[in-house]
């Protein structure tokens, strides 16, 4: 599938999808979206690249080994649970900063948690799709 149009448009759309995925992640607390949807859209971006330019390119654009994304995402999600422990609340209790930041809005540990979800979902989908669409196609 070496189509110039697909390649060009594919990259462009992929970039848009990535931006949209961040948008979904950040607004998820108040409007439809969140880590799951955002992660899926972000993964869609890389799947699109994979379909148009093959697995190696998609992998290179992703920049990180999907397996590492799994670990990083899980760690981020878990880390968001620890601040609550310091003030004697149960693990994963939501903690909020009262100031309203530009772009991000209110910041709290649930957002960090959702970011972890986002990263894990991205890693999971990329890992699965890359494996099945794999470099090691035939043995």
């Amino acid at each position: 599938m070496n189509s110039v149009i697909l390649t060009t448009v594919g990259r462009l759309v992929a970039a848009l999808l990535l931006i949209f995925s961040f948008f979904l992640l950040l607004r998820g607390h108040n409007l439809p979206g969140g880590g799951f949807a955002g992660g899926l859209v972000a993964a869609g971006a890389f799947v699109l690249v994979m379909l148009s330019e093959g697995v190696p390119t998609a992998r290179r654009l992703l920049g990180v080994d999907p397996a590492k994304l799994l670990g990083i995402g899980l760690l981020v999600a878990m880390a968001s649970g620890f601040p609550a422990l310091f003030i004697g609340k149960p693990f994963l209790t939501g903690m909020w900063d009262k100031t309203v930041w530009p772009v991000l809005g209110k910041v709290g540990t649930p957002l960090v948690f959702d970011t972890g979800v986002y990263i894990v979902v991205l890693g999971v989908v990329c890992m699965i799709v890359f494996s099945l669409g794999g470099e090691d196609a035939e043995d």
Partner: peptide
């Protein structure tokens, strides 16, 4: 959070989601 589904996922039932 106004999106109750998302709040359940990342706050009330975050351990499940983890």
């Amino acid at each position: 959070g106004r999106n109750v589904v998302n709040v359940i996922l990342v706050d009330f039932r975050a351990l499940d989601t983890l």
